[in-house]
Structure formats: C-alpha cells, structure tokens
Amino acid sequence: MPRTFLDHIAITAFSLEAGAALVADTLGVETQRGGEHPRMATHNRLLRLGKSMYLEVIAPNPAARSPGRPRWFGLDTLAPHALPALSAWVVRSTDIQASAAAASEPLGDLEPMRRSALDWLITIPADGSVPLEGAAPALIQWHADAHPAARMEDKGCALALLEIFHPDPERISRLLSSLELEAPVAVRQAGPGDPVRLAAHIDTPHGRRIL
C-alpha cells in the first residue's frame, strides 16, 4: 500500500476574481495565473506552499463551453453570491488505484484530467461533490517527473497545518489511516450543529494566517 501526501488545498469560488481576492486579503500575497480545465469548464489560480504542495483557487470558467456533466469540487452548487471558501483538499499517491481501493470511504471514480502540458488522474464523485462535505480528500496521481509546485513562483508561503472539523472525527481518522497519509493534518471534533469545515494555517511573509 503506497503512502499518500498532502498535495494541495482548494478554495472554491463562483468567480476566480473573488477567490483570488480572499487569498490576497487573508494571506497578504497574490496568487499566480494557472490555466483552464477543458473537461470541467473550470479555471484556476495558484499559490506555492512548498516544493510539492500548493493552494488552488478554482471556479467555473464563464468563457468555456458547458462540460455536459457536473463540475468537480461541487462548483455547480455555488450561487453567484456565495462567498469563496476553503472547501476541499487533495492527497497525492504513486498508485492511485491501490490508494482508492484501500480507502475506508468511497472517494469517487478515477478520471483523467489535463491542464495545458500537465496531466493526471484524480478521484471525482459522479455528482461532482466533495467527499464527506470536504472532510475527505480527493486522490491524485501526477504524470510528471517534477511536481507542478516546483515551477510556481515562491511567495514565501508554507502550510503549517490543515485542520478538519467533523462531527465524527473517528470516521475521518480511520479514512486517513487507511490512506497511510503523511501530512500536517489534524482532525477535530466539530461543535454541536456546526458544519464540516477546513482551516489552513499558513506561514506567510506577514506571519501565520488562517484560511
């Protein structure tokens, strides 16, 4: 069974501009241009968080043709007035099929994806949702010799900790154990009636900030 590692965290937004503004306002740094995902009719902006980790702002691409299927990361459920939010995370495996089979929770179907010269496999639920309302990660396997973050601008940011708040933390801990995850991730008990949420503690040139 291969180990898995935290690959990236994702801020979902109805518009790319709104998501990028949240990052700039919270972290005090600007994201860089990413690219387009033709199969999903989405586009993104990026922020390096290490040599093999990054933050992604992802949104529907209004200039793209309809994908004819649900977009990933639950983007089709966002209303125009919805606030951008840290709502998903992705872990990397060298054998995504083995990792998906070992997972204690269903994480979605294996799908081939491409953005410019990059291509990869990723797990996506058929309805486009994020597993367990974002508490569970997507799995990814890159088809590249070097991680995409290695080619991103270094803005002096690094992820210190990702917190997952869930009403059944033992369930999430079992999942992460089944994935043999090695990452700065902590599972917390959500308060009574509180929704599932993620909190990323990020070291920046301006000190530690929380998304």
Rank of each mutant, 00 (worst) to 15 (best):
M1G: 14
I9T: 15
I11F: 10
T12R: 15
T12P: 07
S15L: 01
E17T: 12
A21L: 02
V23E: 08
V23A: 14
L27T: 04
L27F: 04
G28T: 07
G28N: 02
V29P: 08
E30I: 09
G35T: 01
E36Y: 12
H37K: 10
P38N: 10
R39V: 03
A41Y: 06
R45K: 13
L47E: 03
R48A: 14
I58Y: 02
I58D: 08
A59I: 09
A63Y: 00
A63N: 08
A63P: 00
A64Q: 09
R69Q: 14
W72F: 13
G74W: 00
D76G: 02
L78F: 06
P80T: 03
H81A: 14
H81Y: 00
P84Y: 07
V91W: 10
S93N: 01
S93K: 02
D95W: 08
Q97K: 12
A98Q: 11
S99Y: 01
A100C: 02
A102P: 04
L107T: 05
G108D: 08
E111S: 15
M113V: 05
R114M: 00
R114A: 13
A117W: 00
D119W: 03
L121V: 05
T123W: 08
I124Q: 11
I124S: 12
A126V: 04
D127K: 07
V130D: 00
G134E: 03
G134D: 02
A135D: 01
A136H: 09
P137I: 11
W142S: 12
W142C: 13
A144T: 06
A149C: 07
A149P: 00
A150G: 09
A150Q: 14
D154N: 15
C157K: 12
A158S: 15
A158H: 13
L159I: 03
A160D: 11
L161H: 05
F165Y: 13
H166S: 04
H166Q: 01
P167Q: 11
R171Q: 11
L176Q: 09
S178Y: 08
L179Y: 08
E180H: 15
L181F: 06
A183Q: 07
P184I: 11
V185Y: 01
A186G: 03
R188C: 09
A190E: 02
G191A: 14
R197V: 06
L198C: 08
A199N: 05
A200E: 03
A200P: 00
H201Q: 08
I202W: 03
H206A: 15
R209M: 11
R209Y: 00
R209H: 13
I210G: 06
